[in-house]
Structure formats: structure tokens, C-alpha cells
Design a protein around this nucleic acid. Structure first.
Lengths: 125, 125, 125, 125
DNA sequence: GTGGTCTAGACCACG
DNA sequence: GTGGTCTAGACCACA
């Protein structure tokens, strides 16, 4: 479900954080869904349990996940007022910047915009 | 020309490395072009000069840049050279991480994957 | 400057977090002041460096501290709009609740309100 | 009568333990008074019954409460008994932690130490 | 068995 | 020498 590349210079916890947020963005994870346990995900990703726990804790502080001691971790009410906080024009200009960055990085390793789009379409829930 | 985000958990050296490679890949920098001096770029990016120097040195070792005493640092590689050094597996893993980052950032401002795809499709033309 | 009681059931990191916030509240720490290094404070408090680092990181995310990699940690612009976010009536009723809690806990170990006041006065910068 | 804050990092059992001791110290509970049943209190506080049971058991071991089969749990100690079991050093260390918590919470809503002291002085009368 | 806290200690990024 | 990341592994709170 998630993946992590230990040889990428981006810290593992940041990769996982983004991976979980991306899974929510694509609809792969929905409000109320349970995430793997800390220890299970650590085993799956071949990563230390503390690293996973740190990510879950950060996402809880950020309001993305909810954890109940002794029970588990679930996806929280999301997308509440995310939209309303940013104006449409602002969102579009930010999206342009984000996409610029992605495309530049993708080009640098030999990927075309078509391949990028194909990848994203494959991830749409 | 390049930019660096100190609050992104990705190490600054990695951001700069990717930025330079991306500039070459997208044709903003061509073979023979001169890069800013280490000190100048450090000032521009508000980054320690050692960090810039390390990136230049690393890119020189990788054959992407060339340093000539008294002349400065120039682009050695072409975009194709860059690409040919990246394996298919590496490309796919990196694409996933890049897409995760885009999706996570986009979601944080209230954009869905569909809007992201639509934006990219509009730019394909 | 700070103190921590390992036998108190409150997690050490939470004690230290509160201690630092309290030091700012009392004026003992002011905007721009440098905090002890992670390792130094760890030695002083007889606590693991990771525990201190976790607190600094949390306070940075909360906007209370600012850290520069390789440099150190300082107190950030504080008290900006804390006041304006809460109405006066709300603040007073919250203060009453907070004080209730403190006094009840203090009574339970045999402290009078006068002793509590004396302690707070001694900590006023 | 008691309250518990699940988002406070202080363990729930510790919050409840302090709450019961505080209720005795402030005279809300007197020797011989009956406490709610474990299950009732668990429901009221939205807490697991095991947690409440452990606190009652711990307070019984400490001589603060007494459990009689078929009757329930009652207060055994007086406020003085509670106090006499706390050493001076412990009292001072705890007072500092309690004050840190109050100051940190107060500051978070924009109150200064002076306002806190003024509030407490007004309640002394 | 779940998540939370803490320690010890290694290695890295950065100044 | 500064903070940041990660690991391994212990112990605790809670359901």
C-alpha cells in the first residue's frame, strides 16, 4: 500500500508521511479507514517501528489521523475546510508551481508528461 | 534559477542537486553553460557555501558538471546523458515518490487528484 | 533553568515542553534568546538527547522555537496574535478552570494558595 | 465530579488518581463517602473500566480508599493523612511542575504571569 | 496486542 | 560542534 525508498535522500518518515497523505488524496484511504498497526507497517516497509510511530504521531497532531491508545489508528474527518482556506486563484497558481516542480524532476530522470499522467491515472481510486 | 526550501525535510543538498539536474533536463541549462559561482549561489539561496560546494563536487564526480580552474563550473552533460544513467526500476520508484509529494501538497490546499490530472493534461498540449 | 522529575507520571517530554513554555511565559526566556544545545540540556537534565530533541522539534512545529541546522535553537517571535485569538471573557473563564485545577492538585499535597502565589511571584522575571 | 482529558499527555490513570486525591483534599469527598462504581465512572469519563479499576486498586493499596464487598468503594483517608505522606522535597518539585503547566496553558491563550497571579490573589480573600 | 515513551548509540547534514 | 534521522530494544498504559 505504501512504499519507501531508503536510498532516496528524502527522510523515510517524510516519504511515509507524504505517502499516507497521497493515499488519502487519491481516495485509497477514506475517513474512518484503519491504517496498518505501527509494528505491522514497520515490518512491511522494513523500517524501524519508531519511524512509523513518529509519522502516525505527526499526522495525528496535524489532524489527519486519529489514534486511540490500545486500539489503533484511523483516518480522520478530512477535507473539512481545507478548500475554504485558500482562494481559487491561489490554489491554481500553487498547483502550477507544484506541477512545475514535479515535471522538472520527472524530466531529469527521463520521464515524459504522458508517463506522469498515466501514473496518476493508475492511482485514481 | 534554482530554489531551495529550508522547511522541506528533504536535505538542502538533495534539493539543489535535483534542481540542477532538472534545469539541464528541461533545457534551461545546456552543455557548456556556466553555473553561478559557489559563493554567489550560496548568497542567492541563503545557504551555506559548503553545501553548494559539496553539490558541485558531487555533480562533478558524477560527470554532470566540469570545473576548470580560473574559468568556473560548466555543464558537461546533456539531458540524454543524465537519463541514460537512470535505471528503469529507479525511475519508477522515484516517480512514485514525486507523485506522492505532489498529491500530498495538492491535497493540503484542497485539490483532488482529478484536478491535478486535469491540470497536467491541459499542459500536455 | 528547567527541571524534570522522572518519577512523576507525566512524560518527561511533556514536562520539558511545559517548562520551556513556562519560561517564556514568565519572561525568563525572551524572543531571540538561545536555548541550551540539545546535548547540553540532555546532560543537565540527566535525560536522553533524543528526548530533548523531540521537545525542541515539537516546539518548533508549534511555532514557539526556531532552529537552524548546525547553529542552534532560539525563541521565536511569540505572543503575536495569541491574545487576539481568544475573547477576554473566554480567557477569564479558562483561567478560572486552569487555576481550579492547579489549586486542587496543590491542596492535595498540602500546599496553600499563599504558597502557590509565593512560588509564582518568585518566578516572575 | 472528576474529569479527564484524553489529549493531555499525562496518563489517564494519573489524572484520575490526582483528581480523587484533590477531591479529598478540597473536602469534596470526606471520610466514609462512597465513590461511583468502577463501571459507572468508566462510562461517565468515557474511559476503559480497567483503567478506573487500577486507580481504585492503587489508591486502596495507598490507604486512601477502602473497598468493602457488597458495599462499594469509600474514602478512608482524611486530607491530613494525604498530606502527611508527602515529603517537602516532593511537594516542591510537584509545585514547580504544576505551576509550569498552569503557566504554559495560560500563556497559550495570551495570559501573562502577572494576570495569573492577580487572579489567584483575588481568590485568596 | 495496540500505541507511547525512553534509552543508547550510530551516522548524516550543515555551519 | 550543531541539530536530524534512524535503529534496536526495553518497558509502560490501555483495551
Amino acid at each position: 500500500m505504501f512504499s519507501v525508498n531508503p536510498s532516496d535522500p528524502t527522510p523515510i518518515y517524510a516519504q511515509l508521511d507524504r505517502g499516507i497523505r497521497a493515499a488519502i488524496a487519491t481516495g485509497q484511504l477514506r475517513t474512518g479507514d484503519r491504517l496498518p498497526t505501527v509494528r505491522q507497517l514497520a515490518v512491511d516497509l522494513k523500517v524501524n517501528a519508531n519511524t512509523v510511530a513518529k509519522v502516525y504521531a505527526e499526522l495525528e497532531r496535524a489532524g489527519v489521523l486519529a489514534t486511540q491508545r490500545g486500539v489503533g489508528t484511523t483516518v480522520r474527518d478530512t477535507a473539512e475546510d481545507l478548500v475554504s482556506r485558500t482562494s481559487k486563484a491561489e490554489r491554481e497558481s500553487t498547483l502550477r508551481l507544484l506541477a512545475d516542480k514535479l515535471l522538472a524532476d520527472a524530466y531529469a530522470i527521463g520521464l515524459t508528461i504522458d508517463e506522469v499522467i498515466r501514473h496518476l491515472e493508475a492511482r485514481r481510486a
